[in-house]
Amino acid sequence: MKTLPLIIFAIAAIGQWAAPLSQIWTHEQTLTQGTLIKLKCSAPDPYDPLRGRYLAVRPEQREVSVPSEMKLASGAPVYAALTTGTDGLATISSLSLTPPATGDYIHLKTGYTYQSKASIQWPFERFYINEKLAPEADKWFAENIRSDKGIIAEVRVLKGRAVLADLSLDGKSFREILKERVK
């Protein structure tokens, strides 16, 4: 048996494990040690052929003011400082090219810029759900889209990385609400 193909195969096999494991490691770190922030958002129900049903999570805040001295190209990576309001919901208060010294922040990309505002691309956009619950999620979403409470995205933030932990309505987990409705 030749040695070189075996070495290449071993490296490839390790790579096939390392890629998902590194994702798991960084996301577990964020989920267990990150700060919980809440964002008001909307969530329609599309489908990914490879990963199944998900809710497309779109935080309501889409634009942020850009300091006049900051020149941003489309797709430029920036650090967004987060501030929590009296209602417990977080918003992006400012953008910077370096990580803020204090407070929670998210590393994200900007979209187009015009005048003194820049659109932002949130680093989370999908909340995967069970196929059985998906039709009920669709119905529930249509019923609640216009409510004042709104759907809340619960996000864990650590060192600029953000992981979507759950969705909730009126303090209740989205999955729990759906399971009760399906019963």
Binding site: R51, G52, F124, R126, Y128, V163
Partner: peptide, 8 residues
Amino acid sequence: VSQIYNLG
């Protein structure tokens, strides 16, 4: 993995 962690 990307489904479990809701990766974008």
